[in-house]
Amino acid sequence: MSFMSSEQSRRDAFKLAGLAGLSLLVASPALATPEEVASAIGKAYGDRKFASGKIKMDVPEIAENGLVVPINVEVESPMTDADYVKAVHVYAEGNPLPNVISYKFTPACGKASASARMRLAQTQDVVCVAEMSDGSLYKAKATIKVTIGGCGG
């Protein structure tokens, strides 16, 4: 008998052992795979290249509640008419639908930083892509663990 895990089993185990508090987030058995996220990003950007740096993601290492995971994204930029961050897109690789949020910034923001709260179905990497006014693209990712918790002491 194999111990290959399914996401359903995992959630049920959490609820039962009550070490858990994770309630049912999604009924869909199909979770987005890294390939699907890549294709979601691919669809938007084709084969354009991403640079690294400039993006600072502030997310918890461990989600306290998979249904409400805070995420702040801040992109380094002078935010002038000549040089600003046009957009930031957030993708969750392990969610049934990988798109989370797309922001459009303007120089009037003064600072390209925004906070929101997202649902995460499981432990995964969250990816952010920033589009600058000169057309260049930046990408960053952060791992967020969705755990059953309990036993802390």
């Binding site: 969610n95 906070s115 997202m118």
Partner: peptide, 13 residues
């Protein structure tokens, strides 16, 4: 994937 009772913050000059 955005949580219920959505929160959004941003900055303004």
């Amino acid at each position: 994937s955005v949580s219920s009772n959505p929160y959004q913050s941003f900055f303004f000059k």
